[in-house]
Design a protein around this nucleic acid. Structure first.
Length: 410
RNA sequence: GCCAGGGUAGGGUAGUCUGGUUAUCCUAAGGGGCUGUGGAUCCCUCGACCCGGGUUCAAAUCUCGGCCCUGGCCCCA
């Protein structure tokens, strides 16, 4: 038997309904902010991702060569592709651009809870706005999208300027190493690394910065940073918008291209892979040959949200089983068409079963049985049976449709 | 890449320690009895020891390797 590839999943109808339902909630949340969906190719030029993230990314990507000898990769994330698309297709569009996406990504990693080799991200990118309001809108948007799903989670917001200000005296490579320790809260490694650089003096202030939870403290620790007004404005807007968050200036996001505000979200009930949101302000377009446009965006780990939400069953369709004898079939087909035209899920027997067997079958899966035998067909009526209560009555087809339709709303 | 625990019909399981009958039970699925009112019952059917090597008269069982799953580490754009 052929197995599915490692780290991939099959989704049966129940699970797909739950996923689509959650997806719809997030889509609706960002739609209300004016974000419109875009779609980029499943695979891209390999360079798009190595330019952004360095050669190290190669180990974690699905890389292949096509028949023309082109080096391609399955997308490991969406942001780089969206910015590429912006440069290619929308450079002169009026700013700001508000875009969102829901797409699958591929990473060659060891699968575990909440981590798969094919996974879905729901995200948004705000391109061409470089203000506190822009930063705050993206955080609001991410917050609304996640809250709409019903998941319980924590939002942490930070800004790279504080850490960068403290580290201003270090080489870029050294900065990166220090920030990696901080992002992981690895204080022992941090102390050792700083000592190796002869910068142990920084240890206390960096540790204090990571631990501090108020803007006032952070400014005291990090000193005068040029972005002070912008940071204060951003947080004031979040407060005014009623966003629940905590400050965390240890967020480094592990990436060089983030330029300022950064944020992360963590689900309450997940294990090691509990980060369900990541985002921030960045500049990426210049890497791909475009203008140096300011952008801000986020990505939500959709699969982790689904794991966090658990197995709660989505609202089921009302199902009408159209049950008929041979004599009633022609009329039954017409009736089924009426039910479907009214938006009701109507299913007919395909197994050549008798009336009793069809009813037995319907009782397991349907809410109503619409029985059409010779008597009903001759009279132009149907017998509607509520399979939950057992009550039944004979009605005109239109009345039967109304009866079943009313069931949905009660 | 590393560590731990796993893998028996579609799903859930017993059996593995201590090798030995036709691999247990529940459920689901298909058919039959019935043929205009169901979930019952009865009968029948379908369907599994992850893959490969080794040990043995004999392997689901012991052993080695691989694959895959679950969780943790690492990493996480």
């Amino acid at each position: 038997m052929i197995q599915k590839p490692r780290g991939t999943r099959d989704f049966l109808p129940d699970e797909m309904e739950a996923r689509r339902s959650t997806e719809a909630k997030m889509r609706e949340a960002v739609r209300r902010f004016g974000y419109r969906e875009v779609c980029t190719p499943e695979f891209e030029d390999l360079e798009l991702f190595t330019l952004r993230s360095g050669e190290g990314i190669m180990q974690e990507m699905y890389v292949f060569e096509d028949k023309g000898g082109r080096k391609l990769a399955l997308r490991p994330e969406i942001t780089a592709a969206v910015i590429r698309m912006y440069i290619n297709e929308a450079k002169v569009a009026p700013k700001p651009l508000r875009w969102c996406y829901f797409a699958d990504c591929f990473r060659y990693e060891r699968p575990q809870k909440g981590r798969y080799r094919q996974f879905w991200q729901f995200g948004a990118e705000l391109i061409g706005a470089d203000t506190a309001m822009a930063d705050a809108e993206v955080i609001m948007l991410a917050s609304e999208a996640l809250n709409a799903t019903g998941v319980t989670w924590d939002l942490k917001v930070g800004h790279l300027a504080f850490m960068r200000n403290l580290l201003a005296g270090l080489e870029p490579a050294a900065q990166r190493r220090v920030m990696a320790h901080l992002d992981k809260k690895d204080f022992e490694g941090l102390a050792a690394t700083l000592e190796g650089m002869g910068k142990s003096a920084l240890n206390d202030s960096l540790t204090a910065l990571v631990e501090c939870r108020t803007l006032k403290e952070a400014f005291e620790i990090a000193g005068a940073i040029p972005e002070k007004d912008r940071v204060e404005q951003t947080m004031a807007i979040l407060d005014a918008a009623g966003v629940t968050y905590s400050l965390n200036f240890g967020i480094a996001r592990g990436l060089d291209y983030y330029t300022g505000m950064v944020f992360e979200g963590f689900a309450h009930n997940l294990g090691a892979e509990n980060q369900i949101l990541g985002g921030g302000a960045y500049r990426l377009a210049h890497l791909f040959g475009g203008d140096d446009v300011a952008s801000c965006g986020f990505a939500i780990g959709f699969d982790r949200v689904m794991v966090s939400l658990g197995d709660a069953a989505p609202a089921k369709d009302t199902i009408a089983a159209i049950i008929c004898t041979d004599e009633g079939r022609s009329f039954a087909l017409a009736v089924a068409r009426q039910f479907r035209a009214a938006g009701i899920r109507a299913e007919m027997d395909l197994m050549a079963r008798g009336l009793g067997a069809q009813l037995a079958r319907a009782s397991k899966s349907a809410d109503f049985a619409v029985v059409i035998g010779k008597r009903e067909a001759d009279a132009g009526q149907v017998t509607v049976k509520d399979l939950h209560s057992g009550e039944q009555k004979t009605l005109d087809p239109a009345a039967a449709v109304a009866e079943v339709k009313a069931y949905r709303t009660r």
